[in-house]
Design a protein around this nucleic acid. Sequence first.
DNA 1: TCTATGACTCCGG
DNA 2: CCCGGAGCCATAG
Length: 114
Amino acid sequence: MTEKPKDVNFFTKAHNVAMQIPYGMVTSYGAIAKYLGAAKSARMVGWAMNAAHNNAAIPAHRVVNRKGLLTGKFHFDGTNLMQQLLENEGVEVKNHQIVDLEKYFWNPQENLDL
DNA sequence: TCTATGACTCCGG
DNA sequence: CCCGGAGCCATAG
């Protein structure tokens, strides 16, 4: 139990948003962080995804940085696993980077009705 | 308690 | 878009 009984709010919300990412769509850490009200804490979203490793219900592979680059691929089991997962969902990925990011981008603030 | 680090983002050049 | 630098905040040691 590495988690503390206090302040799991940020992670919980981050997990909640990540879980709501629709199939074949992707979003950025900053978008999630902004939705959480902590646009400056985009890094924490990444941390939350790290914790999400323990939660298979959280598609962390659908979360990329603002450039559409699969920055988290390194933390996955394999090197290209993350890319394979996205391609499997119909997202065109090239060299660990999403081709038409805007096309697959999913904004939580517009879709989750803040 | 303090220091270092990081799945990021923004800003100026 | 690329490059370098700064800001941010939680976790680990």
